[in-house]
């Protein structure tokens, strides 16, 4: 995901090693291990042990007070029959299907317009300001948008009241609440993907556009025949990243609606949090975590597959 700096010099390295007695050989073979130790110790405590423990907990019945009791696959079986978890999967899927295509499409179209038409100060302002929501924390975004869309004294309702219209409780309406969260997600993410697409479009060879202009291609034709095909790997990255983020959504939902109304916006992680830290069913919550893990890994594998097909 990260661009490499100039290529590794391993081949010249081997050459010099055979040519002359390398100073590298004289050193203790495991001196490097010492440098890895601090990060490995931390990763062991905060990642590796927790992952394995989470897997173990998912096969147990465990509340914070007692100790875990092995119950095999019971948690997974319960989950498959738990309507609130099945609903959470569906809500998360709808959220993803709403947010990802929209933010991908908008950031591509905006990037294209900025590159083609506004490679000037105005274009820079557009890119810089659209990036501001990216810098803000999700909690701030959620608090502010809740105050705009939310209940009685919210901005939207004040405005509707001024026009003499009946109030509209966006976040209290089961259908509108999820749509609102999707739109806030798109609002938050566009600047991020815009930067990625902007760089990508700049990297498309100019000759392609020049040649097609000579042949009389319109801008729209260039967009569909040159820009979009050339950006395929970038689009893939944008879609995969957006999908993985979407499946992990929590902050926005928790602060804007708390998963309500009536579970209409309760996503996987909201249910995980409720099971683990409100109901103290740590085993059950861990099973949810493992399902989330499998989903995210599956997305990453699909990404790898599609990328290597290119």
């Amino acid at each position: 995901m990260v661009a490499t700096s100039p290529a590794s010099t391993s081949s010249t390295d081997t050459l010099s090693r055979t040519a002359q007695p390398s100073p590298r050989k004289a050193r203790k073979p495991f001196s490097g291990a010492l440098y890895i130790l601090p990060s490995f110790a931390i990763l062991l405590v905060v990642m590796i042990i927790p992952i394995l423990t989470s897997l173990y907990y998912s096969f147990t019945s465990y509340s914070v007070l007692g100790s875990p009791t092995w119950i095999g696959l019971d948690n997974y079986q319960l989950l498959s029959q738990d309507p609130s978890f099945v609903d959470a999967l569906i809500v998360t899927l709808i959220y993803t299907l709403g947010a990802v295509p929209l933010q991908t499409f908008l950031s591509l179209v905006i990037a294209e317009a900025v590159v083609r038409r506004f490679r000037n100060a105005f274009g820079r302002v557009v890119r810089s300001v659209l990036f501001v929501p990216v810098v803000s924390s999700l909690v701030v975004a959620a608090v502010v948008w809740r105050a705009i869309l939310g209940t009685d004294q919210g901005l939207v309702n004040s405005f509707l009241g001024m026009l003499g219209l009946p109030g509209l409780n966006v976040l209290g309406n089961p259908n509108l609440a999820l749509a609102a969260i999707i739109l806030v997600t798109v609002w938050k993410n566009i600047g991020y993907f815009l930067v990625i697409y902007y760089a990508g479009i700049l990297a498309v060879p100019a000759e392609l556009y020049e040649a097609s202009s000579v042949d009389g291609a319109s801008r729209i034709q260039q967009l569909f025949k040159i820009t979009i095909p050339s950006l395929r790997p970038i689009t893939l990255l944008v879609v995969i990243l957006g999908t993985i983020w979407s499946f992990q959504v929590f902050d926005l939902v928790y602060v804007m609606t708390g998963g309500g109304p009536g579970g209409a916006t309760a996503t996987i992680v909201v249910r995980l949090y409720q099971a683990g830290f409100e109901n103290f069913q740590m085993g059950y919550a861990s099973a949810m975590a493992m399902i989330l893990f499998v989903i995210v890994v599956a997305i990453a594998i699909v990404q790898r597959k599609v990328l290597s097909d290119d």
């Binding site: 990642m47 992952i51 993985i244 989330l292 893990f293 890994v297």
Partner: peptide
């Protein structure tokens, strides 16, 4: 490999540890 693991997966054991 650890980079692929969502933060929420380690949450519960991390709290215990």
């Amino acid at each position: 490999a650890t980079m692929m693991v969502p933060g929420q997966v380690t949450l519960i054991p991390l709290y215990g540890i």
